[in-house]
Amino acid sequence: MPPRATDRRRAAVLGSPIAHSLSPVLHRAAYTELGLAHWTYDRFDVDEAALPGFFEGLGPEWAGLSLTMPLKRAVIPLLDSISETAASVDAVNTVVFGEDGRKTGDNTDIPGIVAALREHGIEKVETAAILGAGATASSALAALARVCTGEVAVYVRSAARAAEIRGWAERLDVNVRVANWLDAEEALHAPLVVATTPAGATDAIAATVPETPTTLFDVLYDPWPTALAARWSVRGGVVIGGLDLLVHQAVLQVEKMTSRAVTVQRVRAVAGEIFDRK
């Protein structure tokens, strides 16, 4: 029997490590705004080996899951279906449980990037650059497939990463030029730069930010600002941070799990309060 509207409903974020995740705070803030007092959202440290067992233990009160590394691909065999968006990059960060028990995977990182860009007035760009070639870079490339009308230059450290990016580009039908990481400073002249690298990776090129930079989307949110984002801002460029992405993808997850719309402003305000206290 499907749960009633007033029955307890559960959701959570899974990953390993997971203690740092802000998802519980953001989702709970959304539940408060929506008046969903019977909804709870937790975090669980779950690795790839433990994931099947975790799924087996879920009851009918579960509405959805958020997934972070290393589970975004490992979860796919456990699902009944995945969306076209998730399939385009073989990565699921959202699972929604239907009333019939079906488990559907989706990806809110990609539309979250697009939404964050649009919020800053960026609908279309002629060219763009991506720094890095990991899992987040594939989502960024998928997002740029919707935003960039021309070439996307991707700066990578290894031949293996270069091959992966070329594969994603072909799959996503994006015009990609793969470039060497040693030339990464040239990326900073693109109309839109998306930095998908770990903390500290772009520090060395921060000093080379041009006199009149355009838009930087740095997906990190802690530590913040990165050296690159700080220099970009000082130079007068537009900076979009990882907190913007985190908020937008969380709002989309809440809407998919609860079938209720929540305002971005409320969730962002809660996230901002957390960082103001740091």
Rank of each mutant, 00 (worst) to 15 (best):
K124N: 11
E126K: 02
A129P: 04
L131A: 06
A133F: 00
A135Y: 13
T136E: 08
S138Y: 07
A140G: 00
A140Q: 02
L141H: 07
L141N: 05
A145N: 03
A145C: 01
R146G: 01
C148D: 10
C148E: 13
T149S: 14
G150Y: 09
G150N: 09
E151N: 12
A153D: 15
Y155A: 03
Y155D: 06
A162Y: 03
A163S: 10
R166A: 11
E170T: 14
R171E: 01
L172Y: 03
D173N: 12
V174A: 04
N175D: 13
V178W: 03
N180L: 11
D183M: 08
E185C: 04
H189W: 14
V193M: 08
A195D: 14
A199Y: 02
D203C: 07
A207K: 04
V209Y: 10
V209T: 08
P210L: 09
T214K: 13
T215F: 05
L216A: 08
V219P: 03
V219W: 11
P223H: 01
T226W: 10
A227D: 12
A230P: 10
A230C: 10
R231G: 05
W232I: 08
S233Q: 14
V238I: 15
I240C: 08
G242P: 08
G242I: 13
D244Q: 09
L246G: 00
H248P: 00
L252C: 07
V254S: 06
V254D: 11
V254L: 07
M257C: 04
M257R: 03
S259Q: 15
A261F: 13
A261M: 14
V262A: 06
T263H: 07
V264W: 14
